[in-house]
Design a protein around this nucleic acid. Structure first.
Lengths: 254, 254
DNA sequence: AGAATAGTGTCTATCAGACACTATGCA
DNA sequence: TGCATAGTGTCTGATAGACACTATTCT
């Protein structure tokens, strides 16, 4: 056993990475927010070739060390870094999760690029802080509605489609809607987020009942004060992350 | 617009991939089956360094073209190829789906390797066909039970954990259990698969009711003949893949 | 006063868990 | 004949959808 370990140490000392061709690995980001009861995705206008002038998802390459001891950054760290660089958002304030890896050989006309897509959820209170990064001519919150605009660059329409599918599915069993409301929120505000994500309407009364269940489960707690969006001021609540600990398996991924 | 396209064509003609360091990209496979009412995962004994002699998940590198025109294979195709090479299974007869991408900088002691993990579901009727591939000393169906054996090589215990989580969650809303029974099956056989996956027991009567609902929904159809596993022979059924078309959004990923 | 939203309560259908029960084929 | 498994039926509690209704505040 120890002999095997010594042998392995020797093997690793002598090991030189073969010269098999390697792909570039990128991260692409599907950044969502909800503005005016509408689900939006962040797109940037490409300032460089290829697809110069087209809208695209933000993204960039994973930094890989040159070999000798230096290994580079984690894939998730790369997603966080690109989020900060390309949008100006602080990763600590944003929900970020790996989505799917897209590896078609010709998805980038320049060379072989395998992209590990992630999606992010940004509170509407933070959405206005977004600024264009260095290699983008502009940033825009685009509606995810089907009719919304020209095709995106690369396979980004496909990535967006998968991200939408994921978020629409996950919102039913994981507490991700809370990542798309301000720190404190009213029942109607949370309902509006669900409606924007699912693309349907929910009965106000029934949604309220669901809301109350989350409150008795300790997932939601009342916050001080009231907020008046329309006519009558409404109570405000906040998300209790620790409340989830009471519910088994609710931490599946968050 | 056309000017831009010409410009882009020229750009691509001139484009030479930069010499940024690139990672190796691999696929790892979590291959499940159910044998003797127990969920098993396929592990191979490593015949080479590193982790020589340890059990590991099957896997291998994605083939990337050398550049000039040749781009190499799709990531999913690489997973199919590795499945065939390392286990002898025909990818056409096996359910295979991308799981998650593992990209910690030091997950492989040799060099930077980013692995796109997939999971596969193999019918018990095909499980005995598995044979060891070229760079494995042995193959084994190992129980996924927590107490089952020594740690796996690399971060494969973590990959297995994520795969289990995915399958346990997905079996409740997608028809993946049918990939783990023979072409025709009894109610008890399907129940046994659910029990193996979830690690619990289901009331036979209640499960039967659920089964019947799938039948009226057109997802399951009765097949000719009966099968006798214990005492009394039971009716056999088959999965009707097209039956899902009647149910909206049931095709989410399958 | 009227409009609009906040908030409450009821009826019904669906589904899961617990469990009692009958039916059938094999040893 | 007994036993194990196949297969049926009932009761109860939780939840979602539809919808009627009251309460409060702003204009």
């Amino acid at each position: 056993m120890s002999a095997t370990r010594d042998e392995e140490a020797a093997y690793l000392r002598e090991y030189r990475a073969g010269d098999w061709p390697r792909p570039s690995v990128a991260v692409d980001l599907v950044v969502f927010t909800v503005l005016d009861t509408d689900l939006k995705v962040l797109v940037i206008r490409r300032d460089v070739h290829p697809f110069k002038g087209a809208w695209a998802l933000p993204g960039g390459f994973v930094r890989v060390g040159a070999g000798e001891g230096e290994r580079g950054e984690d894939v998730y760290a790369a997603a966080q870094r690109e989020l900060a660089e390309e949008t100006g958002l602080d990763p600590a304030t944003v929900y970020l999760e790996q989505l799917y890896t897209f590896g078609a050989p010709d998805r980038d006309p320049r060379m072989r690029v395998i992209s590990v897509a992630h999606y992010a959820l940004v509170r509407p209170t933070l959405a206005p802080l977004v600024v264009a990064g260095t290699d983008a001519a502009a940033v825009r919150w685009r509606s995810v509605a089907a009719e919304a605009g020209e095709p995106l660059a690369f396979d980004h329409d496909e990535i967006l489609r998968v991200a939408l599918e994921r978020v629409r599915g996950k919102v039913d069993y994981a507490p991700i809607a809370f990542e798309l409301v301000p720190e404190t929120f009213t029942v109607a505000e949370l309902r509006s987020v669900y409606e924007a994500i699912k693309g349907t309407t929910y009965d106000a009364g029934n949604f309220r009942r669901r809301f109350k269940r989350m409150q008795t489960d300790g997932v939601i707690a009342q916050a001080p004060g009231k907020r008046t969006t329309g006519t009558k001021p409404a109570r405000v609540y906040r998300f209790v992350r620790e409340g989830l600990l009471a519910r088994p398996d609710a931490l599946a991924d968050t």
